[in-house]
């Protein structure tokens, strides 16, 4: 197990190194950073002085090492557009995005898994067919359209929910949360539904097809032949066997939820990283872009690591080395 974790950590570091390289290249070679910073009337000498001061004349390798060193300390330089450290900007906005993503992922799991189990067990029932039809909507409608439709219905026509923003937030230490106020929770409903709907339907369809597969296996038949209750067979024996693929997909999807919160955040003017990233693209604010790139890669790497460790927890066949080590 330990060897496995160390091996995976090494791989993760490699991935992060590679992403950092891309971020660095983007930082330095997409346009001229000095050009971005100075005004139109800055003289050539002043530009060269600035270039020297920023270390832009050093060899690329030295600059890259410096970039990595700073990145590891959470330093990504100043935002061109906000004139503030990028790290601070992210620190302010990260909670909003993570909260939204977390609630959306939770929604997708808590609703999607039971729906998948239900439709797998009663594949020809009326409700199952209803769920399946509904899931087609979730799969095929683009996120922004769902968001706009929701705003139109619940904010414009019915006036029940706010159409934008995060509501009131409470600061707990370095973290700002909207989960503790009523307006914060209300503001969270539509964005999280919008963001989670696709994953919800995806998970539901995945669980359903895995359930159908597992229910046909011999060990399920044998469990029934031993007189185990339906509950024990369906949830104890069948559902657990569907978990490995479900964990894989869910893990990847949580990564995507964080990364693709961009669209939802834009639609709902949610003050998170995604919205900031989109604004950064408009203004060619490269420090923000490269920091965002690194951060999202970091989330993906961490989630994948967790997913790989969950496999070990769920499936004893993957623990074979460990079992042998303990057996003697």
């Amino acid at each position: 197990m330990l060897a496995f974790i160390i091996r995976r950590l090494a791989q993760s570091l490699f991935v992060m190194f590679f992403v950092a390289m891309v971020a660095f290249l983007m930082f330095n070679y997409v346009g001229d950073p000095v050009h971005q910073m100075v005004g139109i009337d800055t003289s050539f000498e002043e530009r060269e002085a600035l270039r020297e001061h920023l270390g832009l004349n050093d060899p690329a390798l030295v600059q890259f090492m410096r970039f990595i060193g700073h990145a590891m300390q959470g330093e990504f330089g100043l935002s061109y557009q906000h004139k503030r450290p990028v790290a601070d900007l992210f620190r302010e906005r990260l909670p909003a995005t993570l909260e939204l993503s977390f609630v959306a992922a939770l929604l997708a799991l808590v609703v999607g898994v039971p729906m998948g189990v239900y439709t797998g067990l009663n594949r020809n029932g009326f409700i199952s067919k209803l769920f399946m039809t509904f899931s087609l909507i979730g799969i095929s409608l683009p996120t922004f359209l769902i968001g706009i439709l929701l705003i139109f219905i619940f904010a414009v026509i019915l006036g029940w929910l706010p159409s934008f923003g995060r509501g009131e937030v409470v600061t707990v230490g370095v973290w700002t949360t909207g989960l503790l106020t009523q307006s914060g929770l209300k503001a969270l409903i539509m964005p999280s539904v919008t963001l989670g709907l696709f994953q919800l339907t995806l998970i539901m369809r995945l669980v359903r097809s895995e359930m159908l597969e597992v229910l046909r296996t011999d060990y399920i038949k044998f469990a029934r032949a031993r007189g185990l209750s339906n509950r024990a067979v369906n949830f104890g024996h069948a559902l657990k066997n569907t978990l490995v693929p479900v964990i894989t997909i869910t893990g990847l999807q949580i990564g995507s939820i964080i990364a693709f919160a961009i669209i939802t955040e834009t639609v709902f003017q949610w003050p998170g990283m995604g919205l900031m990233f989109l604004q950064a693209i408009h203004n060619v604010d490269i420090p923000i872009m490269s920091a965002y790139l690194l951060l999202v890669a970091f989330f993906f790497v961490v989630i994948n690591l967790i997913v790989d460790m969950l496999y070990y927890v769920v499936d004893p066949r993957l623990r074979i080395d460990l079992g042998k080590a303990n057996g003697h």
Binding site: D218, Y219, F222, R224, A225, R226, N230, H237, P316
Partner: peptide
């Protein structure tokens, strides 16, 4: 169903063809 379930295992046991697939891989 309930009477049938009480009967399975208790009064009538069953053994399947393939021992490799008859046992749930995730439980001891």
């Amino acid at each position: 169903y309930n009477h049938l379930r009480a009967l399975r295992g208790r009064k009538i046991g069953m053994i399947f063809q393939d021992p490799l697939t008859s046992l749930n891989p995730l439980y001891t």
